[in-house]
């Protein structure tokens, strides 16, 4: 069953995000902003608008790198270093 689910997921997500993100709208554009416009509200520019050329790519790269680093740092601490300590405790 788990293999079947994974197979379904891979069929549903065959394209790399980089190829698709530039062509396809996000659901906020396709749903949230579309319905809001139909109901008389339009989105306004963010107060701190980083959506200017490659600046947004830069901040996303920075955010992804920072988030990935924090996650990896604590992952190592919890699942690698502490696992060894727990195994030693278990042997005692």
């Amino acid at each position: 069953m788990k293999r079947f689910l994974l197979a379904v997921l891979f069929m549903l997500l065959p394209l790399p995000a980089s190829a698709a993100a530039s062509k396809w709208p996000g659901v906020d554009e396709a749903v949230v902003e579309k319905f809001a416009a139909q109901l008389g509200r339009t989105a306004r520019e963010p107060y701190l608008n980083t959506d200017q050329g490659d600046l947004l790519l830069f901040v996303f790269a920075l955010a992804g790198g920072g988030g990935g680093f924090i996650m990896g740092y604590y992952w190592h601490k919890v699942f690698i270093v502490k696992q060894d300590l727990c195994l030693k405790d278990g042997e005692d």
Partner: peptide, 21 residues
């Protein structure tokens, strides 16, 4: 984790955008 960390892309998704409410 590597995918998430190294391929971040500008995203437009579920959050309600500025000014809609």
């Amino acid at each position: 984790a590597l995918m998430l960390g190294f391929f971040p892309l500008p995203v437009a998704a579920m959050h309600i955008s500025e000014g809609i409410l």
